[in-house]
Design a protein around this nucleic acid. Structure first.
Lengths: 259, 259
DNA sequence: TATTCCGATAGTGAC
DNA sequence: GTCACTATCGGAATGAG
């Protein structure tokens, strides 16, 4: 992504004009592309498409800031379209999580408070931040879910329902304020412990994810065994039913609790 | 030189205890060693030896600052011994310059205003600052002959003959003041032009030395030819003398001027 | 906060 | 200002038309 305007470029094209190595999917209002430098195991961008017939110009769609500075109703329509497609994307990511890793884990959906690249883009990425492309503090802090630079979609949507003065304050999106956040010391987004450099952070994040994977897989294994047991019980019950049709010992098995 | 006390260690040993890879020569009062990380084509250190019978302790010899803070007469004796051996060393370096490079160039003799290594050490180095070991700004500024951090021996000796108040001021050698000099922007010690980074500086210094070498060799060549011509003239004169003994056309040939 | 390249800068550990 | 190692920080170029 040497070109700061490449997203704007994509957003003005027809889906058929974009290679499948870039475009993952599309809707009438949005394009979903692979982030060229994924900062998590799964990382996509959803862009609002630039349409000649739309009342929103390419300049309105420059960024979250420019969008929120314009007509609020039209802004909300763009946000809703992005949100809708993010939710669809999440389901697809989850399917792929199970296929590749055997379990699901959370997904974050949000914007950067002070993006570098032109054209509004919604980040949809898995909650791990484990990636070779995660190379420096700015990368990391920009996706830390509690640090303030990463603006969760649901939080941004809530601004629309708040007091107009609050909306106005949040929508100002002062670059300086957000840029400063990127220089802060790093901490693990999961356990909160201080991380003094990138190598340490990256090892730690890998460990956190490995723990998460172990837990999830153990849970999946318990569930599988329980279901197997239930199945046996059912088939035994069926045999018993067949041989002793006047009794019914079948009972519902509750799903194991989260741990 | 991972050990900050290694010079003190050397200074307390007998010359016979030091390997020839470290010790170049010695006198009753001094040791001349090879700088382990030469910042010029020739770079030596002269250390005052620590002697049990001396009135100067190892602490007096800790640094130029500590030496000048003590008895002035004894300090002057140490300085004179260092100076005497530096002058001898210079002659030996010059001989080696001619042997290796075919010409001589200046040699700097002086102290660092704020040394890191313990035990007083006088730097004797050729005026080029061309060396693989010259790696950063601090290295360079610490030997720049006009920057202030490098204290030329003759200047330091002149303090002894100045007003006591001036001696006291200069002898204070405030570390903070000298350390600050090392952070200044770099400039060529020869032509004064600004040098914005080390690679640029090092190429430039190499060019300066190459020019100097060309000039010196051209000069040496002119001298050689002139001497040859003189020799021919002489031998012709001898022949003429032999054949015509009553005339004397021999005349002195002046050394060519510096350019 | 697009990446990448280059180089300066900063902290550490050395025995 | 000892070195060597690691990592961070800081500027500049970048590509396309």
């Amino acid at each position: 992504m040497a070109n700061l305007f490449i997203l704007r470029n994509y957003a003005q094209k027809l889906p058929s004009e974009l290679p499948s190595s870039i475009l993952f999917s599309h809707s009438s209002e949005t394009l979903t592309i692979y982030d060229a430098y994924p900062k998590s195991k799964f990382h996509f961008l959803i862009l609002p498409r630039v349409k000649p017939e739309s009342e929103l110009s390419v300049n309105d769609l420059e960024s979250l800031k420019s969008l929120l500075a314009g007509d609020k109703t039209r802004a909300k329509q763009v946000m809703d379209a992005l949100k809708e497609n993010a939710d669809i994307l999440c389901k697809e990511i989850e399917t792929e999580m199970v296929k590749r890793y055997g379990f699901k884990w959370p997904i974050w959906i949000g914007f950067h408070g002070a993006p570098s690249m032109h054209h509004l883009h919604l980040h949809v990425l898995s909650a791990d931040l484990c990636s070779e492309k995660m190379k420096n503090k700015k990368h990391y802090n920009s996706f830390h879910p509690k640090h303030g630079f990463f603006l969760h979609m649901d939080d941004v949507l809530s601004w629309f329902d708040a007091e107009p003065s609050y909306f106005k304050t949040m929508a100002a999106l002062e670059e300086k304020k957000y840029e400063a956040l990127l220089k802060d010391d790093m901490s693990c987004w999961k356990c909160g412990s201080a991380m003094k450099n990138m190598p340490t952070l990256k090892s730690h994040l890998q460990e956190e994810w490995d723990k998460e994977a172990s837990r999830a897989k153990a849970k999946a294994e318990r569930k599988r065994k329980l279901e197997e047991k239930q199945k046996n019980t059912e088939s035994r019950a069926q045999k018993e039913e067949a041989s002793d049709a006047h009794t019914d010992k079948k009972q519902k098995v509750s799903t194991p609790e989260n741990d």
